[in-house]
Amino acid sequence: MTDAFNDHDERNVLAGELALRLLSPEEEVRARALQNTDPDFADQVEGWNAHLAAFADGIAPVEPSAGLWPRIDAATAPTANDNGRVAAFWRTWAIGATGLLAASVGAVAFLVAQPDPVVPPAPPAVVQGGVTRVATLALEDGAPILTIAYDTATGNLFLAPTTQLAGQDGVPHLWLVKPEGGVQLVGAITPGASSRLALTNILSGVAGEATAVAISIEPRGTTPAQDTPGGPVVASGEIQQL
């Protein structure tokens, strides 16, 4: 980069890059963390969103099919046991994933292929309220380093890291990337050792909504803040739903 920007310009441009979604996954995780912790930067991103939304004026409207509203209406309707908003929260994962089905099945196949898997045999497809969310993460060279599966019914998070992570100079930590921006620390990962975590209520809510997961490498003997990686982000992957 030969452009000589001052710090203010750099942050402003970074806010624009984040709003436009130009950044690589790793850069985006770092920028989202900044957005989550720095109100001024968050305001800059919001400012860009306001300006850039005007581009949408050049996009022709397309009427959705008549069946879409009834599905949304049903998914947000109140039930006997909740206020509708909660129902929508859970049903978000249970619908509308046709475009991801092939990729998700591939992710599960990879999960099963991991050596020494701790993940039990896949439960029957129909479990009450159970929707599994999966993600695979790889280093830049494509080497797989971690597969996760999250059971939204039980709050259990299954981790199957490979030994590839062991070569890193530091301790790998897992992060959830929130849909509205920002990240949430899950915890440290032991390379090569599969594990199962029962997430707390707060973490399980974030895990249910997260759009991606990421791995940072933190210096040994340190614990990063809950919402900001202290070390470099070495891998990330979108969460896909079954």
């Binding site: 409207p61 397309v62 009427e63 959705p64 998914a75 619908i95 509308g96 994933a97 475009g99």
Partner: peptide, 25 residues
């Protein structure tokens, strides 16, 4: 707003079924 937002989704995803799935989300 749904027609405008489906236009936005479709411009990015280029697949009607996928765009409607995302619009539902």
């Amino acid at each position: 707003t749904s027609a405008k937002l489906l236009g936005v989704c479709l411009r990015i995803l280029a697949d009607r079924q996928l765009a409607e799935d995302v619009l539902q989300d």
